[in-house]
């Protein structure tokens, strides 16, 4: 028996009929075609599927879509466009924080949620904030640089 969930996704209201045990990552990818949300582990361990729920970075592979009633969800598609990048996206592009790109959407959204709370994080705070997002390509150096760069761009 499906559940009807009304929520806001990337600024648009959606009414989704979903299965009780359906995860948000599956709903976003398969029902709405928001494939920027990546599924890499399915166990909440890697952070690739991170989305923003009411501004908080959460893992969509361990969230039930049925629990999203009334929530506002932002995926990477809702952050910026190629012609109008969000400063965090711009910073990752410029600072070389992207290699294969599979962890990138989750990394960017986690960084964005962190910067919204802490606009000028230290190295240690960046590392703590991104410690749940696995990247196998970069060695993280340029990801730390990207977040600093984003903080500079977002500074008032």
């Amino acid at each position: 028996m499906s559940v009807e969930v009304t929520c806001t996704i990337n600024g648009e209201q959606h009414v989704l009929p979903v299965e009780p045990a359906e995860t948000l990552v599956e709903s976003l990818r398969l029902r709405l075609g928001l494939t920027g949300v990546k599924k890499a582990c399915g166990t909440g361990d890697c952070g690739a599927c991170t989305v923003l729920v009411d501004g908080e970075a959460l893992r969509s592979c361990i969230l039930l879509t049925a629990s999203m009633q009334g929530k506002s969800i932002t995926t990477i598609e809702g952050l910026g466009t190629p012609d109008n990048l969000h400063p965090v996206q711009e910073a990752f592009v410029e600072a070389g924080g992207i290699q294969c790109g599979f962890c990138t959407p989750g990394m960017i959204l986690t960084a964005k949620a962190m910067l919204d709370k802490n606009p000028r994080p230290s190295d240690a705070e960046i590392m703590e904030g991104l410690s749940g997002n696995l990247c196998r390509c970069t060695g993280y150096v340029k990801i730390v640089d990207s977040v600093h760069r984003a903080a500079e761009k977002m500074a008032p």
């Binding site: 990818r29 990477i76 598609e77 466009t81 190629p82 990048l85 592009v93 992207i98 790109g101 990138t104």
Partner: peptide, 18 residues
């Protein structure tokens, strides 16, 4: 700058599963 970086940063690029 990487030629694929913007497509990746915006989540628009399609990997196989997409």
């Amino acid at each position: 700058l990487r030629t694929d970086a913007i497509a990746k940063a915006t989540g628009r690029v399609r990997f196989t599963a997409d």
